[in-house]
Write a protein that binds this DNA or RNA. Structure first.
Lengths: 167, 167
DNA sequence: TTAAACTTTCAATAATTACTGAAAGTTTAA
DNA sequence: TTAAACTTTCAGTAATTATTGAAAGTTTAA
């Protein structure tokens, strides 16, 4: 496998994984491209490399910046904007965990707390609803608390911790 | 919030979370419904409750069974089939982790190993590709190993472990 | 200021994914 | 066996999501 084959394989695999996890393909592929690029890339560069339109590129770059894993960079004396990705894998993981927690997990936890907190009426189905949503609430809460630990620790905490668990 | 409101809120929230994570809404909602149901439900029951077609119900039940989190149950003397979900939250987490690892993480790890294993040619871009995909490979590998630990431990290992980390 | 160089927005359209419903398939009781 | 009771499959369609491309917007150098 030469450079080009490896690059294309990585970009398309990353895109496919994204799709599977509810992230659109273009967004994941732009991230992949920047992740392995030793230099900042312009919008033109990205459009050309991935064969996607200007609009699509612009929108997905914005999303990646919202996620805090891609940044704008300007080269002195050039009007054009360049983009770079977060390059540290730990920081990438931290940032993704933080955003998924904030956007997706926390709101669900809130609903689970509300639902599992309704008053019992003695019926079997109400008891089951309360019991089962409470169990999910506790699981989600534990997972989320752990995520926040990760987010608020120094960046290699996760590796150290995982290592401890694995051993 | 009364029983019906709470039930509907839980089912729709679970469906929305599924969508966000690449799981189709009907599948997530059927799971939610079975999760809080004290009794096994028939296909008719599910169709009626969620307003979805027979075909949709059948296909998504099969997927839930493939994931190992919903089971068929037959009542003696009845021809109709009934469905129940795994009721233990730990076992649910174990099973989901196991399947996501097998279907999605392991194949990506394989690609990352291949891509990061290409021979360097001295160019900067090849070095960067190797370095960055190797970093992802190691992260994914750690995460996956942890998942497998979870999967192969007794079912409350995860809670105990998370608790230790959180404290 | 102006206009060139660039980015963003968004309505229209394409692509993908999910869902329906009816026909085909399966199982079981008689 | 047959036929009733049920489930699965799948071609067609609907709904959703992603993408384009051109117009509008922004920035900067002169």
């Amino acid at each position: 496998m030469n450079y080009k084959e490896a690059k294309d394989k990585f970009i398309s695999t990353w895109g496919a994984l994204g799709t599977l996890w509810g992230i659109n393909k273009a967004m994941a592929q732009i991230h992949a491209l920047l992740w392995i690029s030793p230099e900042p890339l312009s919008m033109e560069d990205i459009m050309e490399e991935l064969h996607i339109s200007r609009g699509n590129t612009s929108m997905n770059l914005r999303q990646l910046m919202d996620w805090g894993i891609v940044f704008k960079e300007s080269k002195p004396g050039e009007r054009k904007e360049y983009f770079v990705s977060e390059k540290d894998v730990q920081e990438l993981a931290r940032q993704v965990a933080k955003e998924r927690s904030r956007r997706e997990i926390k709101p669900v936890i809130k609903v689970l707390r509300e639902v599992s907190g309704i008053e019992g009426d003695g019926s079997k189905k109400t008891e089951e609803l309360i019991k089962q949503t409470k169990a999910l609430y506790e699981l989600a809460n534990n997972a989320d608390t752990m995520m926040n630990k990760i987010v608020n620790q120094e960046s290699n905490w996760i590796t150290k911790t995982l290592m401890k668990l694995i051993k």
